[in-house]
């Protein structure tokens, strides 16, 4: 074998290391799938929150938190369901019956920035009727 042929045989193929790249790509995919499905079901995507630049960001959410969404037209949703104020009271009463320390259940009201306060107050009245008092309104930090 000539020297030249030997040198060519010894040269490794200049391939991209595919297997490690696939590892990274799969990790990225899994990350995006997981974060996409975590897109909280409780939040109504039709709602644009008001700006609240100074508010305290939500760091640790109580898992019992009940989220009530109020759309611009006054439609109220909980989870993916349209509800009436009477149904909110009913559902909260049911939750109260089953939970321990029911009075500390946090209620979060996510109102659309263009909704009139009348609609928000309907939801607040429904909460008030159950006696639950840990109520907070939601805004968003940035655009």
């Amino acid at each position: 074998m000539s020297k030249l042929k030997q040198r060519i045989a010894n040269t490794e193929a200049a391939e991209v290391p595919i297997s490690s790249m696939i590892d990274i790509v799969f990790l990225l995919i899994i990350f995006f799938i997981v974060t996409a499905t975590l897109d909280k079901e409780a939040e109504d995507q039709a709602i644009i929150l008001s700006e609240a630049p100074h508010g305290r960001p939500v760091t640790k959410q109580d898992p019992r938190t009940v989220t009530i969404n109020v759309r611009q037209d006054g439609t109220i949703t909980m989870g993916a369901r349209l509800v009436s104020p009477a149904q909110i009271t009913q559902m909260l009463e049911d939750i109260k019956r089953t939970a321990d320390d029911p009075m500390s259940i946090p209620i979060v009201i996510r109102g659309d920035h263009n909704a009139q306060h009348y609609h928000i107050s309907k939801a607040l009245e429904a909460v008030k009727a159950t006696g639950l008092y840990k109520v907070s309104l939601t805004g968003r930090k940035e655009d």
Partner: peptide, 26 residues
């Protein structure tokens, strides 16, 4: 896999930080 990756990158929404403000009800 790359198609999937690009799809998820494009459909990812920017993370909006929610803030909550407590109010007391009568």
């Amino acid at each position: 896999v790359f198609l999937l990756l690009i799809f998820f990158i494009l459909t990812q929404k920017p993370i909006v930080e929610d803030v909550q403000m407590n109010v007391q009800l009568p």
